[in-house]
Nucleic acid binder design. Structure first.
Length: 279
DNA sequence: TGAAATGTTAACGA
DNA sequence: ATCGTTAACATTTC
């Protein structure tokens, strides 16, 4: 699930569920979920992962922060910190402490009779124990400004508009702008009426203006829709597809009625409306 | 059964 | 140096 809105929703959830509460127990059904650095590979498991996670017992959750798709979690007394990346399929759920671990449970923290579980079927997600003094740097290192914060169009153009690479690709470059992934890059471009394959350095000022508005609007709308304690329902979950063009090849564009097109670039499926996002 | 999947990064090739 | 593509990671679901 995770692009910026999903990470934001999970950060809020963990905060609500745990802040100010003491860690009574930890569970680590998949030790490879604990990594020494942010890595998508279980083979990069932290050798001392179990010991480091065990040290959280007795600390108190001090809340979460988010930047781009990274989630930071602080603990106090004694201080500790985790950097969480949800990868492709990561999410957090809360269950009664007496319940069995849910399917795909990788790590769990029990607070006051309830356990918050990190579930991740595909195992690209990870939890990185950090020296709390380094958490701020780890949260921002290598990331552009957070995509949920509106940027003036000229600043967006200066950051994202460099080079001839396709605008969609440039938008997903976390070093230029942090938070957009495949789905929301596709949706933001549709909102701004920009063809995803346009070279980033050839967008007109009017296009940057449209994009600068479309990006935070897209992300904020999704955050609003997904906020709450319920599991996020996504395209592949069999739920209704909530998107305008993503996953809708051949369907009518909700704005102009033309058939939505699909192509694969950079190994990723891209969707656009040939009617209102001309090349 | 084959194809595709929200993320990240390395490795090539042009 | 820059850009695009492909593969890899690990696993599930349609």
């Amino acid at each position: 699930m995770p692009e910026l809105p999903e990470v934001e929703v999970h950060a809020r959830r963990l905060d609500r569920w745990t802040r100010g509460r003491r860690v009574d127990a930890v569970h680590l059904p998949d030790p490879a979920a604990v990594r020494g650095t942010m890595s998508t590979r279980p083979s990069d498991a932290h050798p001392d992962g179990p010991a480091l996670v065990a040290r959280l017992v007795g600390t108190t959750s001090a809340g979460t922060v988010r930047r781009g798709k990274r989630l930071g979690w602080r603990f106090a007394d004694p201080d500790a910190a985790l950097l969480v990346h949800l990868g492709m399929t990561g999410r957090w759920v809360r269950r009664a402490a007496a319940d069995e671990p849910p399917r795909f449970a990788r790590i769990g923290l029990t607070f006051n009779g309830q356990t918050s579980w990190f579930l991740d079927s595909r195992r690209f997600g990870c939890v990185v124990p950090l020296d709390p003094a380094t958490l701020d740097a780890a949260m921002t290192d290598g990331l552009g400004p957070d995509a949920l914060d509106p940027l003036p169009p000229d600043e967006l153009a200066a950051r994202v508009g460099r080079g001839r690479t396709a605008i969609k690709h440039a938008l997903m470059d976390q070093a230029r702008l942090a938070g957009l992934g495949n789905i929301h890059a596709v949706e933001a471009l549709w909102r701004a009426r920009i063809h995803p394959g346009q070279p980033a350095n050839r967008l007109e000022p009017a296009a940057w203006e449209a994009l600068a508005a479309a990006i935070p609007a897209q992300l904020a709308d999704v955050v609003r829709d997904e906020d709450g304690d319920d599991d996020v329902v996504y395209v592949s979950d069999g739920g209704d597809n909530p998107f305008a063009v993503y996953g809708r090849e051949g369907e009518a564009c909700p704005r102009c009625g033309a058939a939505v097109a699909r192509a694969v670039t950079g190994g990723r499926a891209t969707f656009w409306c040939p009617g209102c996002q001309p090349a």
